[in-house]
Design a protein around this nucleic acid. Structure first.
Lengths: 115, 115
DNA sequence: AATTCAGTTAACCAACTGGTTGACTTTCCA
DNA sequence: TGGAAAGTCAACCAGTTGGTTAACTGAATT
């Protein structure tokens, strides 16, 4: 059983649904970075990066420490756990189901008709 | 190493970012269902469910067989695998990092200032 | 004191989302 | 043959997203 308080799977999955955001997570996994350091590899504006960071913060995936004029961002991977668990629950299916149930269904769905 | 062709993590994560869509996946995990059967538990219109199904189909998470006038939908869990793997990669962090690196960082970030 | 640097905020834009209602197509059934 | 049923499609709506540029705040540098 999963049994999380289900913090906000929506926010986490939505945060992960953008390649820039996943790349930011990937960068921060190598260690904390300032906003400028984060934005360097991307050819989008700084405000755009700032917005992505806000999405990640809202999903609690990134925390920020203001040190002087620089904002040091750090990955907080905990909210990924419920998402991972949600997927793990269905990971039983994509092997189990595919030889057992799928075989069963393909013999009962003979009158199929793909659009 | 993950080394998937990375089909479209975007589409899968975006599809999972909606609670109705996750519930549809949950329902289809118990076996194939028609569109009406899927929509029954929700108090949104049929066209709304139809749109959700289109998102799930675009992410290749749901396949459909038109049998007469009913559309039988089935869960296809394979595209969840790359998403699961992506998260698994970072699952190393949320234990490893949190005692090692986090402890290291909290002693070098003494002058923090949460907004 | 003036300037530059880090970063956010504001206003704007086009595109997408999630929902609706109404009209339509196709299939089943009496 | 005439509904009713299953489902999509089209048009619409309000709100969000991902991006921009311009203006701003606050800290560092000179």
């Amino acid at each position: 059983m999963v049994n999380y308080p289900v913090p906000d799977l929506d926010g986490v999955f939505r945060a992960l649904a953008d390649p820039t955001r996943r790349a930011i997570i990937g960068a921060l996994a190598r260690g904390p970075k300032t906003v400028s350091e984060i934005s360097r590899p991307f050819d989008i504006s700084l405000p755009a990066v700032s917005k992505h960071l806000k999405v990640l913060e809202r999903a609690r995936l990134v925390t920020r420490q203001v040190r002087g004029r620089e904002h040091h961002c750090r990955l907080n991977p905990q909210p990924l756990a419920p998402a991972h668990d949600w997927l793990s629950f269905y990971s039983g299916f994509w092997q189990e189901r595919l030889d057992a149930l799928d075989a069963l269904l393909s013999e009962e769905d003979q009158d199929s008709d793909e659009a």
